[in-house]
Amino acid sequence: MPAQYTMPAGPEPAAASLPDARLVLSMADADIDAHIVRDVMHAETGEPARWTNAHPAFRMVLNSDVEDLDFYIHLFLPENTFRVTGPVKLAVTINGAVVATPEFRSEGDHEFRSAVPSGLLRKGEPVTVSFEVRPPYKSPQDGTKLGVLLFSIGFRKQGA
């Protein structure tokens, strides 16, 4: 019989506060629920990835310089859903304007970035980022439409 483990005593320390000027929303962020507008499935705080449905949308405020930014997304296409859907295309919109339509032709981990047209983003103003998943995966159990397993979405400085 092994020694019995005793959980560490004392209260859980607070997580570090998130930087105000961050450009990327990570699904593991403690405040991610506050940034989700629609179509992202619930998960416990701290989960690194979340399933989206077919039309997820996020809202954020860019408090840093908005020039020379790339749209950025990091997602995962599991083998079992990809086998059914085949290549998956996203129609990415920023504040309603379509900015990119990347296609992912293989299962697995994908990162995508694409330059954001100038003038579309304004410092200090809310920006809505959304995408449509074509085709979504339709769950045979309950018909739920699953989009992608999303790690992070937002913007990155060009060349960074």
């Binding site: 320390p13 570090a16 990570s26 593991a28 962020d29 403690a30 701290g46 690194p48 992070s152």
Partner: peptide, 11 residues
Amino acid sequence: GSQDFSERASQ
């Protein structure tokens, strides 16, 4: 989990 290590290092 890379994000989690970074944000919750104290935890």
